Simulated scan of single mutants.
Amino acid sequence: MSGRGRLSGRLLTGLTWAVLLAGLWLWGCGTTEVRGTAVPAAGDLAAIGGPPEAGLPAGTRLPPAARPLGQALPRRVDIPELGVRAPVVARGLDAEGAIDPPPFDQAGVVGWYSGGTEPGATGPALLVGHVDTETRPAVFHRLGTLQGGETVRVVRDDGQVAEFTVDGVQVVPRDRFDARRAYGPRRPGRAELRLITCGGSFDPAARRYSANVIVSAYLTGVAG
């Protein structure tokens, strides 16, 4: 993997956004997921781009956004509510222009798109993980059960732990997909996070899922 200087500062704008996000969608609904055991999302939004508070448990109050951090590479993702403690590896795009996820023999690893925002810096950072493999659940198997107000932590190589608060969970079907609304920034100037995996129903004939699960979160604290 190249040094921090080469990976930093690559915000997704214009054509880069369009190409990357189309690739992410194709990966999320592609033919690599073959088990068909995705867990439905507990906090589905009624439509893509709904208000950040949609789907929150009654009485949940979201904390204010924290000031974005500088650039640093992600090393680990912790999701306490799901028991996830997973290493992060930088991933690029494959030959077809889609994000290249971790291989299936690393189904417990989360992929970070290294051409985009670094978690904790301004803008949406994109993290992808498999929902399952041919034989077992994978790292993001229960991603869709997260709820608004719950926590995602990203350990960075500068020693800081970026703490994100979930503010939305969506299951985005193919026929209602809008890349910019699904993956673009919710509020300008914030440090945001997108956790992405497969969801919806599984089509054994096509060997793919019908949708993506997309968890949105924003930076609310820093430890370390």
Rank of each mutant, 00 (worst) to 15 (best):
G116N: 01
L24Q: 02
G129M: 11
L69M: 10
G159W: 10
G92L: 12
W17I: 05
G120I: 11
Q147S: 14
R35T: 02
R190G: 07
R35Y: 01
V128M: 13
R181W: 14
V109G: 00
T16N: 06
A179D: 11
V110E: 07
G168C: 06
G59S: 11
L82W: 08
G50C: 14
G5K: 09
T133D: 12
A18F: 06
A38N: 02
V19W: 04
A121S: 15
T133H: 12
V139Y: 07
D44V: 14
S210R: 10
G116L: 00
Q71F: 04
R180V: 12
T165G: 04
V222E: 08
R61P: 03
P124R: 01
L11Q: 11
A66T: 00
S201H: 08
T151F: 02
A179M: 09
L93Q: 10
V77E: 00
W27Q: 07
I214T: 05
A191Q: 12
A95D: 14
A47S: 07
Q106G: 05
A86T: 06
A217P: 03
L26Y: 00
P137H: 13
A182D: 02
T31G: 05
V222W: 09
P137D: 14
A65H: 04
W17F: 10
A206V: 03
G221E: 14
T133Y: 12
G199I: 08
V172A: 10
R156I: 03
A18W: 07
A72N: 04
G120P: 09
L146V: 07
A223Q: 15
R176I: 10
R190L: 15
P52H: 05
L127G: 08
F104A: 07
G189D: 12
R6D: 13
G144T: 03
V166M: 03
H130K: 13
Q160I: 09
D203F: 01
G5A: 13
L15Y: 09
V77N: 05
P68R: 07
Y218K: 11
